[in-house]
């Protein structure tokens, strides 16, 4: 087989290697879910404790930015899926194109997030001494969670962009094909995961308390 060269020593064949890689990525995602899970739990507990403060605070998140970003990320999930699809169909050129678009959307997401962070800082939404005094004290907890959760998510997006760029380089070198696309598929899995986490964040931080 032509792909034999890329099967690592410890594996018998390419299929075993690809199974291992897939299971590895899924296990990793399970870990990640629990990682964010701790924060979601804290969010739920405190929302229960300090309901009014949370409602007051969440009216200050910028739902416009949030919505734009949700759209951007959802689209990027689509383009990512298309990149993987292109690989599976052996459309080698299109892989790079879709990947590049995905990366562009990821960057756009970060840019919008940056603008939003800038506004948040202007609006004194950083917990601590300079926190907006008109908000009840416990809404600091909300913003504290807001910064950690979105920050952690942004780190994941950044890591994802690194991974996608590597994929882009590999795609340019025509490494991927219908026979061999495990790294690309797995990068896609990770990207979708990051996307889904965002949807949860969007729901919890921007939407649910808004109309209370």
């Amino acid at each position: 087989m032509k792909e034999n060269s890329i099967v690592a020593d410890q594996f018998e064949n390419a299929q075993q290697q690809s199974e291992a890689a897939h299971l590895g990525m899924w296990t990793f995602i399970a870990t990640e879910i629990l990682f964010f899970g701790g924060l979601f739990l804290a969010y739920i507990v405190y929302r229960h404790f300090y309901f009014t403060e949370f409602v007051a605070a969440s009216k200050h998140t910028e739902v416009l930015f949030g919505t734009i970003n949700s759209i951007i990320l959802l689209t990027s999930s689509l383009t990512m899926a298309l990149a993987v699809h292109a690989a599976k169909e052996n459309y080698r050129l299109q892989i790079s194109r879709w990947l590049a678009l995905t990366i562009f959307l990821g960057l756009a997401f970060l840019a919008v997030k940056g603008l939003e962070y800038h506004d948040d800082i202007e609006n004194k939404l950083v917990p601590g001494a300079h926190f907006d005094p008109s908000l009840p004290a416990q809404s600091q907890i909300f913003f504290w969670l807001y910064w950690t959760m979105t920050g952690l998510h942004a780190i994941h997006v950044t890591v994802g962009l690194g991974v996608l760029s590597t994929m882009l380089l590999l795609a340019r070198k025509e490494k991927f094909s219908a026979n061999y696309n495990t790294p690309l598929t797995l990068a896609g899995l990770y990207w979708h995961f990051v996307d889904i986490v965002w949807l949860f964040l969007f729901a919890l931080l921007y939407v649910i308390s808004r109309h209370k």
């Binding site: 870990t31 990640e32 629990l34 990682f35 899970g37 701790g38 804290a42």
Partner: peptide
């Protein structure tokens, strides 16, 4: 290990 350790990580981080 895979399911519990991340919760510890986030707890200590908090």
């Amino acid at each position: 290990l895979v399911l519990a350790t991340p919760v510890l990580a986030i707890t200590l981080a908090l």
